[in-house]
Design a protein around this nucleic acid. Sequence first.
DNA 1: CTCTAAGTGTTATATTATTACATATGTAAT
DNA 2: ATTACATATGTAATAATATAACACTTAGAG
Lengths: 137, 137
Amino acid sequence: MRSTHTHSKKNQSLTKNQRIVLDLLQNSGEPLKAYFILDSLKKEGLNSPLQVYRALDKLVELGKIHKIESINSFIICNNSNCASNTAFTICERCGKVKEIKNKYLKDSVSDLVKDNQLEITRYNLEFYVLCKSCKIN
Amino acid sequence: MRSTHTHSKKNQSLTKNQRIVLDLLQNSGEPLKAYFILDSLKKEGLNSPLQVYRALDKLVELGKIHKIESINSFIICNNSNCASNTAFTICERCGKVKEIKNKYLKDSVSDLVKDNQLEITRYNLEFYVLCKSCKIN
DNA sequence: CTCTAAGTGTTATATTATTACATATGTAAT
DNA sequence: ATTACATATGTAATAATATAACACTTAGAG
Ligand SMILES: [Zn+2]
Ligand SMILES: [Zn+2]
Ligand SMILES: [Zn+2]
Ligand SMILES: [Zn+2]
């Protein structure tokens, strides 16, 4: 059984623009910038920044992609359960980004913010690291 | 004993531009945007974005201020020991920002990222919340 | 004083993101 | 099939954020 059906079903309700932007991010796996996405999808019929930003906004809203704020880039969600909570490691040296997969993260981070008068609705965690290969070299 | 001396000593090595930008952020206490800072300091002699960005860069480097990535804003460090590690709560409703003061935070967050092949050099944590007063209303 | 590193002033330009508005499409009720 | 509504699209213009390049100045170390 190929994954084609599952994949298309999962993305079934997406519009054409949303789909081609999502596909690009999915195939890339890396964080991409909005104007890079625009350039890459000129041939697919995307002509203006707004078309890209609208698709990105919707995909973020759906939790299918995340925005990495400190590098103004967007990346496919690799975790499937983070909603609008994001946690990434970003290598200071090579720029490689990895989403942190830790299903207990949400509970853990809530404990960090002790003030119980606050209600955490979502979070964005950016850990700058030296990645495995950059640490060696 | 007034704090004037301590304060000026602490900022002694700052240049004129760095000082006036820092003073503005210190007096404000709120996150400010670069171009707002520029407008506010026209009368002090700041004429171009670059003058502001250069001062901001230096102050960030010195750990005296922080950049809050998700709102492209800068805020005075209210913690004095965070170096380039930042942790904020941002109210989703009113936008109020508070720096999280928790001296154990660094250790705690390191534990979150289990992969020991990674070396965390710094972090930027943005917790979106409903603040005390917004929660009530 | 001389040399150097850091900072300044200025203009221009690059990058990131939104406003405004007219048109089109999907979906559900009639 | 027609209407109504919400959502998405296409396009042009512009706003907001940030950096490059270059000539000049200042502060400190030796
Ligand atoms: Zn995710
Ligand atoms: Zn690396
Ligand atoms: Zn701080
Ligand atoms: Zn609030």
